[in-house]
Write a protein that binds this DNA or RNA. Structure first.
Lengths: 187, 187
DNA sequence: TTTGGTTTTTGACAATTATCAAAAGCCCGG
DNA sequence: CCGGGCTTTTGATAATTGTCAAAAACCAAA
């Protein structure tokens, strides 16, 4: 929990009262490898903070699992579309490693927004960071070729390569596993 | 201006006072076709609301203009990365049609956040919508083929086809103009 | 240390998309 | 109504990436 508080303070420092209230609103969850935080068809009603471990979000697209994001230490995690709109999730969130998470429900978070302007500000700022991150991934996906995308991964998030099977990484990069293998052999 | 207020009220209705203050913080801008709202290398210090008209954001990537988004009526528009981080923009924003816009500076917007919790909430909610929109474009870019992306455009935003040259649309979809032309001929 | 299962690599081939060049179509100003 | 410039289409070919199948490497449990 100390990590969550410390992480939040990096984004936007909170006053003691807001910090304490926030602290009380999160519940700890521990899950082991291959378990699911969310399965498609259910509504994702929580926002999670990943203290320790790793997980992935994936779609089932014509029979294949297509991983489109990873979560690691200090990431906020949810099925964003489902969480925001309240509709059924089309993705699954599965643990890649045994993990420690902290969960807050949407209702509680909304209540915190009403109670503390500064907590809503914190989230507004977090959204900005996550939006920028997604924007960069979008540009990579749309305008870079497979090799460039792999090089980008090597430079920006090399830790992914060490903790995640290549099959997941291939679809994260939007290429087939075989193509990824061939790209890697060139380095 | 009435359109901006009406649009905002669709997102998150504001009290009269906040609404009036907000109203006074925007300045009207009119630009004609082919003019620039922003050029790369400059910092984008404003958020714009597009009341009437159309524009595009594009990168210069190895000698080619790569359009990655369009703005139309009722869109909020900025070079998001530059606006948020205060760093130089890597993209250009150019008018596709003569347009009427309303501008607010980042300083003014920040001041409004401090003054009115509800305005920061409005923006927080807007971010959620824009994030979801981008997420969908990302999934399309990464996991759908050219024909599927075109079909998606046909269904979801057919107005783009009527107002934008095909060359821009091709790079918006992440394909070459020739391939887009061939896909179209199949329909 | 062996074994069975999973992950990764390799090979051959097919499908998709890009590139370059040229032709055709379209639109606006005179 | 005509001409010139811009946009879009078409054709031929090349490059990139995907698919299927099999081999190799890796790894964890007995």
């Amino acid at each position: 929990m100390q990590q969550l508080i410390a992480h939040i303070n990096k984004y936007h420092p909170l006053g003691d009262e807001a910090q304490n209230t926030l602290h009380d609103c999160f519940e700890q969850i521990t899950l082991s490898k291959n378990e699911y935080l969310l399965t498609e068809g259910r509504v994702c009603r929580h926002l999670y903070f990943l203290e320790k471990g790793a997980l992935r979000g994936y779609y089932n697209m014509d029979g294949k699992e297509v991983t489109h994001w990873f979560g690691f230490e200090e990431d906020f995690v949810t099925s964003f579309y489902s969480f925001i709109t309240g509709s059924m999730a089309v993705e699954n969130i599965q643990l890649i490693e045994g993990s420690i998470l902290w969960a807050i429900s949407k209702e509680r978070l909304t209540a915190l927004f009403n109670q503390y302007h500064e907590i809503e500000r914190l989230v507004r700022i977090a959204y900005e960071k996550y939006y920028i991150r997604l924007e960069e991934r979008f540009v990579n996906a749309q305008f870079k070729n497979a090799t460039e995308r792999y090089e980008n991964l090597l430079q920006q998030t090399p830790h992914i390569l060490e903790r995640v099977p290549l099959g997941f990484i291939a679809s994260y990069l939007g290429i087939s596993q075989e193509t990824l293998s061939r790209i890697r052999s060139k380095f």
